[in-house]
């Protein structure tokens, strides 16, 4: 579903260059809930943004459902949905209009919109607020709205950057349910998180990134081994930690 091959991205600044992602390769298959874990500034968001087609990269190949993101970004974007860690929405628009806008852009039929909005907005308990301006929403409600908009067009690949931040426990549980459901229907999830417990319970595959490079990748059992994901993460991301 998602193939990343030798992805490299360097940021130039006045003080020199920073290699945010260094020759990264990984693969997300249909049915995978793939956790992407790393310390702050490790390169998780950069990787996600490159996969979502919102950021150019220096070298490498990224394909979504067989479509090269660099060569055919529009087609690739049709197959995926990307929710940022702090989604910036249009405060002056009403939520219902925003969902209509997303539905129109992704060509979702009216019947599908109704059923999916009822399901996802109902699940997140924000149906009653859809008539209000987005500017009146709390951070958590904006996060929920962004998730509803992402799920509404039934993406093949759902990419989430820290999706559980700002969600109340009930909404977090609801989201986990939707993630499993999407994967059971043949889709895949690729998400970054700092909440290792969630990753451990939810993900079947995980990658740990440190300073732009993968230090561990594989099934949860392969990466975790006989210890916990937290222990493995701390060992690998401490200075001089060995790769798994």
């Amino acid at each position: 579903m998602l193939q990343i091959r030798n992805l490299t991205k360097t940021f130039k600044s006045g003080k020199g260059e920073k290699r945010a992602v260094d020759n990264l390769s990984l693969s997300v298959s249909p049915g995978d809930i793939y956790g992407f874990i790393g310390h702050n500034g490790a390169g998780k968001t950069t990787t996600l943004r490159a996969c979502a087609g919102v950021m150019a990269y220096d070298s490498g190949e990224i394909s979504v459902d067989g479509v090269d993101v660099a060569r055919d970004p529009i087609e690739a974007k049709r197959r995926l949905a990307y929710v940022q860690d702090n989604p910036e929405l249009y405060d002056n628009l009403k939520a219902e209009y925003y969902l209509k806008f997303i539905g129109d852009v992704y060509n979702v039929s009216e019947g599908d919109r109704r059923s999916r909005i009822e399901k996802y907005a109902g699940g997140f308990e924000i149906i009653g607020n859809l008539g209000d301006p987005i500017g009146s929403y709390s951070h958590g409600m904006k996060q929920k709205l962004a998730l509803v908009a992402a799920l509404m067009h039934a993406p093949r690949l759902l990419m989430l950057d820290e999706p559980f931040v700002g969600l109340d426990p009930k909404a977090a549980l609801t989201l986990k349910g939707y993630m499993r459901e999407l994967c059971e229907s043949g889709g895949a999830i690729f998400f970054s998180t700092h909440v290792l417990d969630v990753a451990e319970k939810l993900c079947n595959r995980v990658a740990i990134i440190k300073n732009g490079a993968l230090v561990a990748e594989g099934t949860m059992e392969e990466v975790r081994g006989t210890t916990s994901l937290e222990a493995v993460f701390m060992e690998l991301t401490e200075a001089g930690g060995a790769n798994v």
């Binding site: 219902e96 209509k100 909005i117």
Partner: peptide, 20 residues
């Protein structure tokens, strides 16, 4: 912002991407 929180779901007619 003025909120009502009593929205009843209604689906508007679909438009094309350009019109949207």
């Amino acid at each position: 912002k003025r909120t009502r929180s009593d929205y009843k779901l209604k689906i508007s007619k679909r438009s094309g991407a350009f019109a949207a």
